[in-house]
Design a binder for these strands. Sequence first.
RNA 1: GUGACCGUAGCUCAGUUGGUAAGAGCGAUGGACUGUGGAUCCAUAGGUCGGGGGUUCAAAUCCCCUCGGUCACCCCA
Length: 422
Amino acid sequence: MKYKAIKGTRDILPEEMFKRRYIENIARELFERWGYLPILTPVFEQTELFVRSIGETTDIVQKEMYTFLDRKGRSLTLRPEGTAPVVRAYLENNLKDFRNPTKLYYFMPMFRYERPQKGRLREFHQIGLEVLGARGPDIDAEVISILATYFEMLRISTYEVKVNTIGCRKCRASYTKKLRRYLKDSFEKLCVDCQFRYEANPMRAFDCKNRTCHSILNKAPQITDYVCDECQRHFEGVKHFLNISGTRFTVDKRLVRGFDYYEKTTFEVVSPLLGAQSAIGAGGRYDPLIADCGGEETPGIGFAIGVERLLLQLEEENVSLNSIPPVDVYVCYLGEDLLDKALEIVFNLRERGLSVDIDYAHRSLKGQFKVADRLKAKYVVVVAPEEEKMESVKVRDMNSGEEQIVKKEELAKTLMEIIHGG
RNA sequence: GUGACCGUAGCUCAGUUGGUAAGAGCGAUGGACUGUGGAUCCAUAGGUCGGGGGUUCAAAUCCCCUCGGUCACCCCA
């Protein structure tokens, strides 16, 4: 084979497409019931949008973006995440005048140049949701609880919702000083990554899995103990409203997000079943982002779910999803000269709304039945000379094996009745 | 970007110390059953042994490079 799907990408074949459509449909149904509307943004954007929103020093911007020049030398980037594009679209289209707050959801592919592993691809898909223009902790709780509700609707049970606050820019600045002061004494013991983080963003050290770092950070001052009064009140509010909504969650003081635009509330849904890439969904509040993108001061919050990880989780939990649906009727014909008659029936039944198929590979009758079986056909209609003489066909119930002769003029009605009516 | 393991038919795999082993099962197609599927039996098709180079009389097998996969680090959905 000459060509292959490029590293970290894959084809999504029919069987998986139906599973994806199922989880997508559940998301649509749920999100729209809660007042969220769909949006789709272009796969690429000006590189600058991502650099400024996600943050110059983040891994995504520094080494994971698919960035290229177009034919006029403009730098473009395949979107690595959904929030910045949605914010851009919100501002560009003045969506605040359409609905305020603006509640949106999306289902889009994302691109990151990473080394593929379980639950991590270079092209992957996210189901995401954003609320622009709502400031209070009540909306934070709504966003987190819709995420949890979604998992419940999918019958996922082995997961945990973690919630934290990372403070706003003001309180984070003073906290960062305190954290640096604490880390200074053990600086030599930190791993090289954390030594780098010490300067760039010391809070990220809480994510470090290095044992030494982990134990050092265990005794470090916690952001939750140092946030300003407003952030503290906000966080208490989030927990309060989460309790009202009946959402189960745990507070994880080590939960830090990787994008610069987050502040205050952060949250994550993790599963113990997925290996190293355990976050199925995650998000947070990003109040500074909209102003950073050139809009007026507007609060925002949202999350994204990794579709491939969600599918892995469903697999791990043995949740059975409908895949390729069976056909209602498979039409067989005995002899080439009855093809015309068979096709008339096929078109007629399709017009009535039944899913109908026929053999185009000129198989023997037995071969046609085998195909019917493989397609899980509920009924087979046989067009054959003997019945044709009586303007009739034979109808076989593929489950029971029972057969009956049916007048052609009554065929559609009869089939509609036994398939839908019964 | 780093490391470990792994690439043989559409799928799952077997292939001995390098020496007629290019093989099995499943699947596909056809037949036994000339008008009937899900069972059985038979037959057929399908492979540059991931790719390239090297060692050798001889390479799926040994060596090097490369591409890809898997998992972990890292990062994150």
